[in-house]
């Protein structure tokens, strides 16, 4: 199997709030450092990536955030237009159809279409021969929606290929579907936290991805893992001091003990995760910085370099 960063597309998913964008950005930075021309695609129209790197919104067109690292925020409306232009091979005809009320109503209501054009755009970014022209990338990383919606997005091409049966939509959806399922082109990476719900969701996602798409999770990255700072003996010592010390010392003792407990809880969840998933599990440290910015992403990229 090719190393992770040598694939054409990495899909980063995971439960909401686990730090998918941060991990996708760190992975992108690492790939760029290794000389891969990389693009990280956001699909949630939230532009968090730009905020991480302290730049204004990136929009639908690729923009360079750091040397070799580009970002794009996929807008379904724009992706739909691009697709129409490509299909009809004419901007004029695409304008006629795209501008018709019928088309607008239909596409607004058509189930899963937004997901299809979005993943279609991501697929295009990962191609050496891009149908929309523009920069060619060695690697595309998609900051995908959270697990449930992420799975829906990955399933959309297969669903459309079978619903449309014949014709250009079916053919293209089929090509995208095969690309997503081909482990030499695409890798799925799940970000989790060492907590009950994200761990359960990760275990569940791996099973569903295998059942519904026949795809294996490449790797699980557990974000925000606390350091193992205190030994059991030291924790005992802190516990035995409960209620002692001055009012100034007590909150510090309590905070230390609380963090020890949290770290222990995390290790238990990490153990559960490792027992229940097939994919290898890597961890990233909890960053105690008040806000996450470029500097923090650089640090996580360093960590990933050591752990991947």
């Amino acid at each position: 199997m090719a190393p992770l960063l040598d694939r054409r597309l990495i899909v980063v998913t995971g439960k909401g709030g686990v730090g998918k964008t941060t991990v996708a950005a760190a992975l992108g930075l690492l790939a760029a450092r290794r000389g891969h021309r990389t693009v990280v695609c956001e699909v949630a129209e939230q532009e968090r990536l730009a905020a991480l790197f302290g730049v204004a919104g990136v929009g639908h067109l690729e923009r360079e955030l750091a040397p070799g690292l580009h970002a794009v925020s996929v807008q379904p409306e724009r992706a739909k237009e691009e697709w129409l232009r490509h299909q009809l091979k004419s901007s004029t005809l695409a304008g006629v159809l795209g501008g018709s009320r019928l088309f607008q109503y239909l596409t607004a209501a058509a189930p899963g279409l937004s997901e299809l054009v979005t993943i279609g755009k991501v697929w295009d970014l990962a191609q050496l021969d891009r149908r929309t022209g523009g920069t060619v990338f060695d690697l595309a990383i998609v900051d995908a929606p959270s697990t449930g919606h992420g799975l829906a997005m990955l399933r959309a091409p297969g669903t459309y290929a079978s619903v449309a049966r014949v014709g250009p939509v079916s053919r293209q959806a089929g090509i995208i579907d095969s690309f997503l399922r081909d482990p030499s082109s695409t890798a799925v990476l799940v970000v989790a936290l060492a907590e009950e719900m994200p761990v359960s969701e990760t275990i569940d996602f791996e099973r569903r991805l295998a059942d519904e798409l026949g795809v294996a999770v490449e790797r699980v990255v557990v974000n925000g893992v606390y350091p193992r700072r205190f030994t059991g003996e030291e924790a005992e010592r802190l516990r035995s001091l409960d209620g002692r010390g001055s009012p100034a010392a007590r909150p510090a003792l309590r905070a230390a003990l609380a963090e020890h407990e949290r770290a222990r809880g995390q290790r238990a969840q990490l153990g559960r995760l490792r027992r229940h998933v097939q994919a290898p599990v890597s961890t990233l440290p909890y960053l105690f910085d008040p806000e996450i910015g470029r500097q923090q992403v650089e640090r996580l990229a360093n960590e990933l370099e050591r752990r991947l």
């Binding site: 001055s246 010392a249 007590r250 510090a252 905070a255």
Partner: peptide, 27 residues
Amino acid sequence: QAGGPTDPAELVELLGEPLARKVLRTY
């Protein structure tokens, strides 16, 4: 949530140097 500033000297006295340093850092 955390309280106000703590007293490093007191922590060293209670816990000894190495453990106090770790507690201080955590706090």
